[in-house]
């Protein structure tokens, strides 16, 4: 009987359950929801949400004291709800608890912002130092450039002075060379250049074109003067007096000029800058009627085209 009844009850309740299951579930859910919204006041739900929000924000690390105060405040509200239900007191306590949670959240955010600001200030200072360093470097570079420029000016001045001194020295040397040359030869400035005239009797034996030993000494001095003074080109011209045949005179004068030219090339006068010409008895410089005049006409002229001009 019992068993049957139980079974029938079971069967009944099972089928009933099966039939009413969706309704039961719906009812159950509704009752839970209804219980939640009706029983727990909005203030307490807000307080819980505010606390959960604060706890997962920066307050947990940066405002722990305020967060703890908020937790205590929430617990007090919860206890009030547990004992009194959704009373005005519970609502007031929950209201305060929500503010405490929001205060904790705000303090955490504030602390975070202040740290950010402190970091930025530090960054600002170091950037300033960086800029200062850079400016200093720029100024240093500018100063160095200025000093280098001054040095260049000084160097240029020194170079100019040295050049001037060298030029003066060269002029002095040239003048000295010219003076020493004037002791052994006639030196004249003509339109065709500087003409150094050497007496034939000093350079050659009569009728010969080989240089006498004394001639070499004189030509050494001439060469020295020419090298020190500088020149563009040199023409060695040989002349004779009017005695003898013109062709003989021409040949002799050329040979003598060539002897002088060849010797000068051995004394640092470049061969490509010096040529020889035989002009015989042409262009006498004195009368061929007297012995002295003829002696003057027997000569070698070294025509120097100056380097400059």
């Amino acid at each position: 009987m019992m068993t049957r009844r139980t079974r029938s009850l079971k069967t009944h309740s099972l089928s009933a359950l099966r039939a009413t299951l969706p309704a039961l579930i719906a009812l159950g859910l509704a009752s839970i929801v209804a219980c939640g919204s009706a029983a727990v006041p909005q203030e307490l739900m807000d307080a819980r949400a505010a606390y959960a929000n604060a706890a997962k924000g920066p307050a947990a690390e940066l405002a722990p004291a305020q967060l703890d105060t908020a937790k205590t405040s929430l617990d007090v509200a919860q206890k009030s709800f547990d004992s009194d239900g959704p009373s005005q007191k519970t609502k007031d306590l929950a209201y305060v608890a929500e503010r405490r949670a929001e205060i904790a959240a705000a303090e955490g955010s504030r602390e975070k912002a202040e740290r950010k600001r402190a970091a930025a200030d530090k960054d600002f200072k170091s950037t300033q130092m960086e800029g200062l360093e850079k400016t200093k470097e720029q100024l240093d570079a500018e100063r160095r450039a200025r000093e280098a420029a001054n040095q260049d000016v000084n160097k240029t001045k020194a170079e100019l002075a040295a050049e001037k001194a060298a030029r003066a020295e060269a002029e002095k040397r040239a003048a000295a060379a010219l003076a020493s040359l004037q002791e052994i030869a006639k030196v004249k400035e003509e339109s065709r250049g500087v003409v150094i005239t050497l007496s034939g009797s000093v350079l050659f034996a009569t009728g010969k074109s080989d240089l006498l030993p004394i001639a070499k000494e004189k030509l050494d001095q001439v060469a020295k003067a020419l090298v020190s003074q500088g020149f563009k080109a040199i023409v060695v011209q040989g002349y004779t007096d009017s005695r003898g045949s013109a062709s003989d005179n021409q040949t002799l004068s050329l040979k003598r000029a060539q002897s002088v030219r060849d010797y000068l090339t051995t004394q640092q006068i470049p061969a490509d800058k010096i040529t020889a010409e035989g002009l015989g008895a042409s262009k006498p410089v004195a009368s061929n009627d007297s012995a002295d005049g003829r002696a003057e006409n027997r000569r070698v002229e070294i025509v120097v085209t100056p380097d400059k001009g």
Binding site: S109, R110, E111, A113, E114, R117, A120, F124
Partner: peptide, 10 residues
Amino acid sequence: KAQADAVDAN
């Protein structure tokens, strides 16, 4: 204010 200051400092 702290937030504004931080933005400003940045």
